[in-house]
Design a protein around this nucleic acid. Structure first.
Length: 888
DNA sequence: TAGTGGCAC
DNA sequence: TCCTAGTGCCACTAA
C-alpha cells in the first residue's frame, strides 16, 4: 500500500468553514459565548477527509503572521483586505485544540505562509513514495498538483471538495499545474492584491500561456506579437508580471523544521475529543463518538412497517403477477433527472412491494413489459421525471394514470414540494418519511448504504402514491378539476418530457466567439470606468459602486434600498447626464450580464454528448399555471436589445437543412381579458383586428375617428393596458411612464369609463375572491389567496391585484397548454419530422426540415388559434430561419 | 443565505 | 400612513 499524507491549509479551510456557516452564527455558540462555526465546519471537513484519505501522516499548516518574505518583495501583498472578523479569530486557538485532540500536528513558520509549508512537505513526501492530499479553500494551491499530489479545494460548504489532479487542472484551465504561476503573473490577483498586466484577465492569460508555454518565453518572443494594445501593456507591465509570478509561486524549499517522520497519524484521542466536544457544546459529534446513533435509527418507529421483496435476477418472474394498476417510483437523488444518478426503484400493486438498487433490472423483460404496457395503469410521483429517467434506460413509460405531484399542485398550487414525504404530510398521510429525514440535507445528503433503510423508504413512497390516489382523485372531482388533470396537465407532462429529451442544439463555437468579444469590451470598459472614478473598484458590487457614485462623485441620491444606495437601471438613467461614468456603467452592466448569464451560463449546461441543451420545465411551480424553465432557463433569452438578441444566433437546428420555426400568440392576455370581462368595446377592437394599443389610446385620450395616434400616446396606452392586466395602481403606472400620480389616476378612471365591462369584472372578481378565498381560470385551475382578507393593507392589496391578474395570466397559460398537446398530436398524424422544442409562455418554437416549413406555416397557427373558442379571435404570428435569431 | 439587479413574457 | 404592476430564473456580492 502506498503511504498517504494529508496536508491541510488551516487558515483557508477555517475561513471557508466560517463563512459557510455564517448564517448560523447565532446558533453556534458554547456556554461561554464563544462562536463555534469555524470549529464545527472544520470538524465536519476533518471527519469527511479522514474517512476518505485514511492518512498515515497528517499536518495542519497555518500562516504565522502578516509579514512574510512576500511582503518584503511587495509592500502591498494582501493589502486592502478586510481584517479577520473577531468572531473568527476568537475560534483559532480552539481550532488548534481540536486538531490536537484529533491526534494531528499543526505547524507554522515565521516569514512563510501555510502554502509554503505544504508545498515543501508535499515535495519531500513525493520523493519518499507518499501519496499526498492537500485540503484548502484556495485555488492557487492547485499549482502543487502532481503525479503524487492531489489538491482538494473546498467547494460549497466544507465537506464538498473538488479534487485537482494535473489532468483535472488541464481540463479546467487548459494548462498544466506548473503554468498556473505564469497565468497568475500575467493576470494578477485582486484578493492578494498584486497587479499583473493591465487588461489581462484569466482568459487572456491562459491564451498567452497556451501559446508560449511560459511567461519567460512570452517575453523572449514579445517582438513577434503583432502590434496591439495588449502588446503595449505587456511591455509596459513587464516588471509587474515578473514580480507577480514570484508572489504567486509557492516556495517548496521553505526552511521547515518538521519532517514527515514527525507527523505520524494514528487516529483521534477519544477522551480529549469528548472533553473538547462537551466544551464546545457539539451534541451531534458527541453522539457520533458514543455510537448512540446507528444508521437504522433513521427509520422512524412511528411509521407503519412495510414488508417488501428485494428484486433480483432470480425472482423477476414475480413482477408478472402484478395486475390492475401499479405504483412505480424511480429514485434520482439529484433534481436534474437528465443527468442524475439512479439510486434504486420500487414497484408494487397495493399489497406487494418490490425494490432494488439495480436499475438494470428495469430493462429486463417482465419489468419493461409492465412499464411499457398500454393496459396496466401506472401511478407515480412526477410522471415527467419518470419518463425522462426511464428514457435514459431505453424504456418508454406508458399509460400513466395518476401523478401525485401533479394532482397535489392542481388541488393547491402551494403544495408543490418535490419531496414526496413533505407532500404526503400536507394530505395528512404520515406513513412515509421525507427525503430530508432519510437522506439528510446540504453537504450531508447521501443515499444510505444500508439496504433496509433505502428500500423501506422507496417502498413506503410507492405505497403512499397508491394509498393517496383515491382521495385525491375525489377532490379533483369536487373542484371540477378532473378534466383539467386528465385532458390537459397529464398529457402535457408527456409532451414536455419529449421536448426536454429532444433538447435544443447550440452552436458552441459561436457562443465562445461572442464571449471573447464581450470579454475584450468588458476589460476596456472597466479601465475607462476606473479612470473616470479615479480608482479601481468592483463594478459588480452595488455597495462599492454606490460609494463611488454617491459619496466620492457626489451624484444626487434618487432611491435607497434596505442596505444602501440603489444603483438600479431606472436610477442610473436619471443620472446619465450628470457624469459620463454612468453610461459606461450601464453598458458594463449590460455586457457583463450577457457574458456571465448567457454566454458562460449556457456553455456550462450544454451536454457534451450531443451539443444540446436539455432544460427542465417545472410544471408544478407557478401560482398561475404557467410553466417555468430551469437548468437553464430558456424562457428569458434576450430579445429586446439587439446585442443580447444575438445570443439567439447560437440556437440552431439539430440537423442540416433544417430550420427553426416559431409561432406566438399576439396579445393573448388582452384577448383573454376581452373574453372574460365581456367588455363590448374591448371585444370590438379585437374582432375588427385593430391595433389594440392605438385603439385604447383613441378611447382614453378621446381622439376623433380620423385623428392620428402619435407614438407617445400609443406608448402610454400600452402601459395602461399592461397595468390593467397586472392589477393596476396609479403609482405603478406613473412610475412606468414617468407621469404624475394624479395624471395616472386620471388615465385609469378614463379607462374604466371607456371599458365599463373591465371595471365590472375587476370588482366582481375581487369580491368573489374575498368570499371564496380563491380565483379560477377558464379550465378551473385554482389559486388560493389566503391574504385576501388580511388586515395589513399591503398584503390585502397584493392579494387583490393577484385576484385580477391570475385568471388572465392563468387562462392564457391554459390555452397554450391545450395548443401544445394538440400540436404534438398534429405533428404525429401528419407524419412530420418537425419537433416542438420550446415554450416561452405565448410562443412555441420548433425545428423542422426546410421542406416542412410551408406545412407548419399553415398547421401551427391553425392548431394554436383553435385551441379554445373565445368570444374574440386568437391571432398567431409565425416566422422561421436558420437560427432562432432569424426566426423573427 | 439575503439582497440587489436584470433578463424574459 | 404605508407603499405601490403580475409571473418567473439566475448571477453576483458580502457575510
Amino acid at each position: 500500500m502506498t503511504k498517504q499524507l494529508l496536508l491541510i491549509d488551516g487558515n483557508s479551510v477555517a475561513f471557508r468553514a466560517f463563512f459557510a456557516l455564517h448564517s448560523q452564527l447565532g446558533k453556534f455558540t458554547n456556554q461561554n459565548g464563544l462562536h463555534t462555526t469555524a470549529i464545527y465546519g472544520f470538524n465536519l471537513m476533518l471527519d469527511h477527509i479522514l474517512k476518505e484519505v485514511q492518512p498515515d501522516a497528517a499536518l495542519v499548516a497555518f500562516d504565522a503572521g502578516k509579514t512574510t518574505f512576500r511582503t518584503e518583495m511587495y509592500d502591498d501583498y494582501k493589502g486592502g483586505r478586510d481584517k479577520t472578523p473577531p468572531e473568527l479569530s476568537e475560534q483559532m486557538p480552539y481550532l488548534k485544540e481540536l486538531i490536537k485532540a484529533y491526534g494531528m500536528h499543526s505547524y507554522e513558520l515565521a516569514n512563510y505562509e501555510a502554502d509554503d509549508i505544504i508545498g515543501t512537505l508535499a515535495l519531500q513526501a513525493g520523493e519518499q513514495g507518499f501519496q499526498t492530499t492537500i485540503v484548502t479553500g484556495d485555488r492557487d494551491l492547485t499549482q502543487l498538483s502532481s503525479e503524487t499530489t492531489t489538491v482538494s479545494v473546498t467547494h460549497k460548504g466544507v465537506t464538498e471538495v473538488e479534487h485537482y489532479t494535473p489532468e483535472h487542472v488541464l481540463e479546467k484551465l487548459g494548462i498544466s499545474p506548473s503554468q498556473i504561476v505564469d497565468m497568475k503573473g500575467l493576470m494578477g490577483d485582486t484578493s492578494d492584491n498584486y497587479p499583473g498586466v493591465t487588461k489581462v484577465g484569466e482568459k487572456t492569460a491562459i491564451k498567452l500561456i497556451k501559446q508560449f508555454g511560459s511567461m519567460e518565453n512570452l517575453y523572449e518572443h514579445i517582438d513577434d506579437l503583432k502590434p496591439s494594445k495588449m502588446k503595449e501593456h505587456l511591455i509596459e507591465d513587464r516588471d509587474n508580471a515578473f514580480m507577480s509570478k514570484k508572489l504567486a509561486q509557492i516556495n517548496c524549499q521553505a526552511p521547515i523544521e518538521v519532517t514527515i517522520n514527525d507527523i505520524d497519524y494514528t487516529g483521534p484521542q477519544t477522551d480529549e475529543l469528548i472533553k473538547f466536544y462537551q466544551e464546545m457544546n457539539f451534541q451531534s459529534f458527541l453522539n457520533k463518538l458514543s455510537g448512540s446513533q446507528t444508521e437504522l435509527d433513521l427509520t422512524d418507529p412511528e411509521i407503519k412497517q412495510i414488508e417488501f421483496t428485494c428484486l433480483d435476477k432470480t425472482n423477476l418472474g414475480q413482477i408478472q403477477t402484478l395486475e390492475g394498476s401499479v405504483s412505480f417510483y424511480l429514485e434520482m437523488p439529484d433534481a436534474n433527472y437528465h443527468t442524475s444518478e439512479f439510486a434504486g426503484f420500487s414497484i408494487g400493486d397495493g399489497h406487494r412491494w418490490f425494490v432494488s438498487r439495480d436499475v438494470e433490472l428495469l430493462t429486463s423483460a417482465p419489468v419493461r413489459q409492465l412499464l411499457e404496457s398500454d393496459t396496466v395503469k401506472k401511478d407515480v410521483f412526477n410522471a415527467k421525471a419518470m419518463t425522462v429517467g426511464l428514457n435514459r434506460l431505453g424504456i418508454t413509460l406508458r399509460h400513466v394514470d395518476f401523478d401525485l405531484l401533479l394532482v397535489s399542485y392542481l388541488l393547491n398550487t402551494n403544495e408543490n414540494s418535490n419531496d414526496l414525504g413533505v407532500l404526503a404530510r400536507e394530505h395528512s398521510y404520515f406513513d412515509v418519511d421525507t427525503d430530508e429525514a432519510v437522506y439528510g440535507k446540504g453537504a450531508k445528503r447521501a443515499i444510505p448504504d444500508v439496504d433496509q433503510v433505502l428500500f423501506a423508504h422507496l417502498a413506503t413512497k410507492t405505497r403512499a402514491i397508491a394509498e393517496l390516489k383515491p382521495q385525491l382523485i375525489q377532490k379533483l372531482n369536487e373542484n371540477e378539476q378532473i378534466d383539467l388533470y386528465t385532458d390537459i396537465e397529464l398529457p402535457l407532462s408527456d409532451v414536455l418530457a419529449q421536448m426536454e429529451i429532444t433538447g435544443v442544439k447550440v452552436d458552441v463555437e459561436r457562443l465562445k466567439a461572442m464571449g471573447s468579444k464581450l470579454i475584450e469590451r468588458l476589460s476596456e470598459l472597466e479601465q475607462t470606468i476606473y479612470q473616470e472614478a479615479g480608482e479601481s473598484f468592483n463594478i459588480n458590487s452595488p455597495k462599492q459602486l454606490g460609494e463611488i457614485l454617491f459619496e466620492k462623485m457626489k451624484l444626487p441620491v434618487i432611491k435607497k434600498t434596505k442596505t444602501g444606495y440603489s444603483t438600479a437601471v431606472d436610477v442610473l438613467e436619471k443620472l446619465r447626464d450628470q457624469a459620463p461614468i454612468v453610461d459606461n456603467i450601464l453598458l458594463y452592466r449590460q455586457i457583463s450580464k450577457l457574458q456571465s448569464t448567457y454566454i458562460e451560463g449556457l456553455l456550462k449546461v450544454v451536454h457534451s454528448t450531443d451539443q444540446k441543451i436539455h432544460t427542465r420545465y417545472l410544471q408544478t411551480l407557478t401560482q398561475t399555471g404557467r410553466l417555468s424553465s430551469v437548468d437553464p432557463n430558456l424562457q428569458n433569452i434576450p430579445i429586446r436589445l439587439e446585442e443580447g438578441r444575438k445570443i439567439r444566433q447560437a440556437f440552431v437546428p439539430s440537423h442540416e437543412d433544417w430550420e427553426i420555426f416559431s409561432s406566438d400568440y399576439s396579445q393573448i392576455e388582452l384577448r383573454v381579458l376581452a373574453h372574460v370581462t365581456g367588455d363590448h368595446n374591448l371585444q370590438e377592437a379585437f374582432i375588427e383586428d385593430q391595433d389594440i394599443h392605438a385603439s385604447t389610446a383613441r378611447r382614453i385620450f378621446k381622439l376623433g375617428p380620423d385623428e392620428e395616434v402619435d407614438r407617445n400616446l400609443r406608448r402610454q396606452a400600452k402601459a395602461v393596458n399592461f397595468g390593467i392586466v397586472y392589477g393596476i395602481s396609479d403609482y405603478g403606472l406613473s412610475q412606468n411612464i414617468g407621469i404624475s400620480r394624479k395624471q395616472a389616476k386620471q388615465f385609469i378612471e378614463t379607462y374604466f369609463e371607456e371599458f365599463p365591462g373591465v371595471k365590472k369584472y375587476i370588482d366582481e372578481i375581487v369580491e368573489s375572491a374575498h368570499k371564496r378565498g380563491y380565483v379560477e381560470t377558464l379550465t378551473h385551475r385554482r389559486r388560493y389567496l389566503p391574504e385576501i382578507n388580511a388586515k395589513n393593507f399591503n398584503q390585502r392589496s397584493f392579494a387583490e391585484r393577484t385576484a385580477m391578474n391570475t385568471p388572465i395570466q392563468g387562462s392564457a397559460a391554459d390555452i397554450i397548454k391545450i395548443a401544445m398537446i394538440q400540436m404534438n398530436q398534429a405533428l404525429a398524424t401528419h407524419h412530420l419530422k418537425a419537433k416542438m422544442l420550446l415554450q416561452i409562455h405565448d410562443e412555441l418554437v420548433f425545428e423542422a426540415p426546410s421542406e416542412e416549413i410551408p406545412v407548419l406555416e399553415k398547421l401551427v397557427p391553425k392548431v394554436m388559434d383553435s385551441a379554445v373558442s373565445l368570444d374574440v379571435p386568437l391571432k398567431v404570428e409565425s416566422a422561421h430561419g436558420k437560427t432562432w435569431y432569424e426566426a423573427k
